[in-house]
Design a protein around this nucleic acid. Structure first.
Lengths: 201, 201, 201, 201
DNA sequence: CTGTAATCGAGACGGTACGTCGCGTCTTACT
DNA sequence: AGTAAGACGCGACGTACCGTCTCGATTACAG
């Protein structure tokens, strides 16, 4: 369950073994049983760890999920760089949709966003620690296009990102309607059509 | 505590007085203390009602919120019909943003969507009972424009709605960035630019 | 486990069934496993009762024992009344020694006195609720003897009681030496020899 | 914190400094806060010692108290030897009562006797290591009186000791009634009256 | 105009999980 | 070898709510 890392448990550092098995257990339990059935006690039992060890290092079960999410999902959502803006965005949105609806990390993300609706502190953390970085990655293809002269430098790129990823998140989080490639591709086409015309206007 | 409705408590049906005061209490407590602190016991005490009375008529606290939401919010989000598509959409999105971020019913909505991430049954109910109807209302301006010949009848109106309301929900539920009139107006302009050109292509 | 008493659980009175099974469970567990291993959780499980039900009615595990002791032991230690002072006292002390060392209720008593050394509040309760009454019973043979004219009315009867029951308690609680009939009979003889001579002096 | 003893922490045996500060800390904490609030962790912090150091040298917190008691109290309860039996016993019982009710070591003794009711192992230790020796000291005046011919050599001196110290312990441990000089002096008078007559019988 | 039955308030019940405390064990760097 | 520091697995603490239950009181209609 916990691998072969040494069991430290002394003042020269916390137990990496305990940390890892807690994150794994939380992840597994969330996917298997859902957020509502996720309890600190359940995580402790599954991880083979004392409850107090969890409370020593994490203030709440959402903090565990936040860290588990960071570990699992950080790199998955970097858009490609092929030199073709439309292609990069299409690929990125397809990956995003698959991530949000089909991956374990996406399940963690949905649970965190859900819980953030009830907990302003979590909302802040989530935005500072994850969404800000993701926004940077989401902007990359557009920034490169601006540098290549394909997009008007005066465009508000954050607004464009909202128009691209917003509808995908909306379908996943609110309506539950799938966001297949046709949907995300059309989204890219629509947004780029507007953006591309902007310099001409 | 709950007005002057008669206190029935007999075999011929439930007490309207109790129903109303439960809905009010749930609403108030959600706004005052947040979803995390919302408990059936708290609602019962605030409403001056026995816990059993709540469980007799609602299966869970989210069911109470669902009904409270229905009562408060049903009519607020019907778009105007001025004959000017862009103007109608601009007004509608401004109202939507204000509703989601600024109203008590919007707080209930956010809590329900948040909880729906953890509870598939609630997600289904929310979609069937509220989001489906709201989708109909959101489509109205576009349908009227199609009828007026301003929009290509071949357009997928649901997709257009997603592009309009998706970014607003995304900002409210995910990033927490405000969605001022400039943002929603630009959104309408962007989406309509694409849609208007579509028939020409 | 709990008999056939009705399970009330409403505001018109607590559940007698729960009360009884808690007292029994505490008693049994104390005798089986000792005070150190007696926990509220263990009592709850053994009694088939929720922990909260225990905390609703008793502030601590010693309070449970106090009540269990009252239920079991109140009447056991009333000295006989044969009209023969020495015989009554001999019988009473023999019964007392057997009670303290050999009965379940005696085990509860020893545990309570032990805990009272650590808890002044418990000490007060124990003295007010049990020891005061027992003192009254312990005095009875002596008071009757005074009335019969066998003892000097000027004697301090409480002091005599201390000289009779003190050594028995001392052996049981402190030295652990048995207090057989020879010991208690000699005790009676010694104390009465002094007391009987007192009026003559 | 504990004086100027060297801080060994080396391979040449245990640290006397640590030993002393643990015993002092345990004693102080018992008197200040009572046995119920006495924890190994608390002792360690107060003594400026690691918890492990305590567990290396003592098996339990009662073992610490046992040693602390040995250190403080061993000599205090040796009866005087004036050649006058009654006077020696009166002095001894007065000292005993004062010790039990008024001294720090007496508080430790009461806690140990209390805990011994819950722990047979502690009871054994306490009796072997302390009570046996104290019993020897308690017998001394009587043994000297036998040697002087003042008491019948056939008397059971242990029984006499029980009649002398038993009521004092009983008041202290059980009833909580004070044991002033009048009480202990009368006790001595009563017991000696019986004992003195015994040879005559 | 009286009897009756569904609903009401109140709140105790058996449970689950919470977050905390202290236990006794362990590992480490230092002396 | 022994020490101060402190993290660890563990078990119990006392509390908060859950959802179920039983109770006597209330009240609108049916007989």
């Amino acid at each position: 369950m916990v691998g072969d890392a040494p069991h430290r448990g002394n003042r020269y550092g916390r137990s990496e073994r305990a940390r890892r098995s807690v994150l794994e257990a939380a992840d597994d339990l969330l996917v298997e049983r859902g957020f509502a059935a996720l309890t600190v006690e359940g995580i402790a039992v599954r991880a083979g760890v004392a409850k107090q060890t969890i409370y020593r290092w994490w203030p709440s079960k959402t903090a565990i999920l936040l860290e588990a999410y960071a570990q699992d999902a950080a790199e998955e959502l970097t858009p490609p760089d092929t030199g073709d803006l439309a292609a990069d965005l299409r690929a990125h949105l397809r990956t995003l949709a698959a991530f949000l609806t089909g991956s374990d990390a996406g399940a963690v993300f949905r649970a965190l966003v859900g819980q953030a609706q009830h907990d302003a502190g979590l909302a802040d953390l989530l935005r500072r620690e994850h969404l800000a970085g993701q926004r940077e990655r989401d902007r990359l293809p557009l920034e490169r296009a601006v540098e290549r002269g394909e997009l008007d430098p005066g465009l508000d790129l954050d607004e464009l990102v909202d128009r691209l990823v917003g509808p995908v998140h909306y379908r996943v989080l609110v309506t539950g309607v799938p966001a297949p490639a046709e949907f995300t591709d059309a989204l890219v086409a629509g947004v780029l059509a507007t953006a591309a015309r902007s310099p001409a206007s």
